[in-house]
Amino acid sequence: MTVWDRPEPPTRPAPLDRDRIVAAAIALADEGGLDEVSLRKVAARLDVGPMRLYGYISTKQELFDLMLDEVYAEILPAEEPTDWREALHGHAVRTRQAALRHEWLADLLGGRPTLGPNAMAVGEAALSALDGLADIDTIMRAVETVSAYVTGAIRRETANLRAERATGLSKHEWQQAHGPHLTRMLASGRFPTLAKAVHDGRHIDAEETFTTGLTWLLDALAPKLSPPPA
């Protein structure tokens, strides 16, 4: 029986429910990452004994599942998209925005499918927007391809943010600190194409990088999602 199927216990002696537990866990994760989430710390934030939580969740993994599904509610489209491209583009952008609000999301994406109601609603919204454009296997591969791109891009962007905090150096400060080494390596002539990219390439921010890659990916999927001839 999954955590979503298991009924909650009575709320005495102090009011408690899964929503409050999940909200406290998300707050802890937002402040310090998933390593800060433990049943003991969640219980302390709610001012209850840790054993009280076991009536609502059995393991920390169940708590992570509930946290993930709660964030999936932020990824659901507010309105039904008008076409498949809008649906997949919107899904990708909303997922990235959610990950920027909750950096720990990157650590939970890409694993086994979550069976929470919000996650399933997100999946239904993506698949239904493509329904009828191709066979179901092609549709599933298209959605999975976009999801894989989004997960990879989010993890890279999140890793950069974490590295910046860990070193205490901004991107510009890090580049200044490592600039002399990079200059010497490129001047050696061993990496001509990399040197061209560094010296001549246009440097863009994370959002533009994400949007450009997403556009190229959707362009590549378009021929496979053309409506069948009448």
Rank of each mutant, 00 (worst) to 15 (best):
residue 2 T to Q: 11
residue 2 T to K: 10
residue 2 T to L: 05
residue 4 W to V: 06
residue 8 E to A: 13
residue 13 P to G: 13
residue 15 P to S: 13
residue 23 A to N: 05
residue 24 A to C: 08
residue 25 A to W: 06
residue 25 A to N: 09
residue 26 I to H: 01
residue 30 D to Q: 14
residue 31 E to R: 15
residue 35 D to M: 09
residue 36 E to S: 15
residue 36 E to T: 14
residue 40 R to C: 01
residue 52 R to D: 01
residue 52 R to Y: 03
residue 53 L to Q: 00
residue 55 G to C: 08
residue 55 G to L: 07
residue 56 Y to K: 01
residue 57 I to Y: 03
residue 60 K to M: 09
residue 64 F to S: 06
residue 66 L to M: 13
residue 72 Y to E: 13
residue 74 E to V: 00
residue 80 E to M: 11
residue 83 D to E: 11
residue 83 D to L: 04
residue 83 D to W: 03
residue 84 W to T: 00
residue 88 L to A: 04
residue 89 H to A: 14
residue 89 H to S: 14
residue 90 G to V: 03
residue 95 T to N: 05
residue 95 T to A: 05
residue 96 R to H: 08
residue 97 Q to P: 01
residue 104 W to N: 01
residue 104 W to L: 00
residue 113 P to F: 07
residue 113 P to Q: 07
residue 114 T to M: 04
residue 120 M to N: 12
residue 121 A to G: 14
residue 123 G to Q: 04
residue 128 S to L: 08
residue 131 D to W: 14
residue 133 L to E: 10
residue 135 D to L: 07
residue 136 I to W: 07
residue 137 D to M: 10
residue 143 V to R: 04
residue 144 E to P: 02
residue 145 T to L: 12
residue 147 S to C: 06
residue 153 A to H: 03
residue 157 E to Y: 00
residue 157 E to M: 02
residue 168 G to F: 05
residue 168 G to Q: 07
residue 170 S to E: 00
residue 173 E to R: 13
residue 178 H to F: 08
residue 179 G to P: 05
residue 182 L to I: 14
residue 183 T to N: 13
residue 189 G to K: 04
residue 189 G to E: 13
residue 190 R to P: 00
residue 192 P to Q: 09
residue 195 A to F: 00
residue 199 H to W: 06
residue 201 G to C: 06
residue 205 D to N: 15
residue 205 D to Q: 08
residue 211 T to E: 15
residue 213 G to W: 01
residue 214 L to I: 13
residue 215 T to G: 07
residue 222 A to Y: 05
residue 228 P to H: 12
